[in-house]
């Protein structure tokens, strides 16, 4: 087997902002259009966005791919204003260009080998799950989604997931859905009815989900959000400790099966 397994679909390209939708004060969706036909893009892959060369946003920002329209050659990014980079990106307008490296990383296992899946998203961790859910539904898979957030304002884009299948909600303060952490949602007690769990969110949440899946004997894939510099496997900064040693979240992930991680 070759030592290097390079994804030759990845490239650097200036994309045009053709859509910008503010969801609320914290979240927005950018729609970026390519002049070319997209290469293969898998759910769970990400883009590395050049914000600008300001001193505080020196490195690119890795952002999950929220949705892809292959006919229009557009890509949607669901972004949380978390720091300087994502705030500066939010100042961009329709008509501006943004440089991306994409598509990067290895995505979710997305095939019809599973019959029924539960996608679990916390906060902006919802982002990589929409495109995944759409693809799974196309494959004939039954898709359920569990969404968690601090309060009602943090539960976003629910209607997009309702188009895919059943949606369950948990908020910390009980302002919407069940009160408490999403790991305490009543659907969790039925975990063993699912063939697979896909999750993305804050680290403690994903770790709690991984433990639950292990307890219920359900296979679980997580999308990690480790800090990255290059996004293409050259700097070795974003490593995750796995049963095979340090692996780059950018090229060996960002999606990992939790049985490979040292979380359990």
């Amino acid at each position: 087997m070759a030592y290097f397994n390079i994804n030759h679909h990845q490239h650097s390209e200036d994309l045009l902002i053709v859509g910008k939708r503010d969801i609320n004060q914290s979240y927005y969706v950018l729609t970026l259009k390519s002049s070319y036909q997209f290469p293969l893009i898998e759910p769970g892959q990400f883009v590395n966005v050049l914000v600008d060369n300001s001193p505080t946003t020196f490195l690119r920002r890795p952002i999950s791919i929220y949705d892809v329209d292959f006919e229009q050659s557009t890509i949607d990014l669901l972004i949380l204003k978390a720091g300087d980079g994502t705030r500066k990106l939010a100042e961009k307008n329709i008509g501006d260009m943004v440089n991306l490296l994409f598509p990067l990383g290895r995505g979710f296992t997305c095939d019809a080998s599973v019959g029924k899946v539960l996608m679990i998203g916390g906060g902006v961790g919802l982002a990589p799950l929409l495109f995944l859910g759409k693809q799974l539904v196309n494959e004939g898979v039954e898709v359920h989604t569990l969404i968690g957030g601090r309060s009602k304002d943090y539960i976003i884009e629910m209607e997009k997931f309702e188009l895919l299948g059943k949606v369950y909600i948990s908020t910390d303060d009980g302002s919407f859905g069940e009160k408490g952490l999403l790991t305490a949602n009543s659907i969790i007690s039925e975990l063993s009815a699912f063939d697979k769990v896909f999750t993305c969110g804050p680290d403690p949440m994903m770790k709690a989900v991984a433990l639950l899946c292990d307890a219920y004997g359900v296979s679980c894939e997580v999308s990690l959000e480790n800090l990255m510099a290059c996004g293409i496997g050259s700097c070795l900064c974003c490593v995750e400790d796995t049963v095979d040693g340090h692996k780059c979240a950018c090229t060996d992930g960002p999606v990992f099966n939790t049985k490979l991680l040292k979380w359990i």
């Binding site: 800090l227 990255m228 900064c237």
Partner: peptide
């Protein structure tokens, strides 16, 4: 190598 985290962005640069 060293444990994660092993990178931090700093003004006009980075630490690794």
């Amino acid at each position: 190598g060293n444990a994660y985290p092993r990178m931090a962005e700093t003004p006009s640069g980075m630490l690794n």
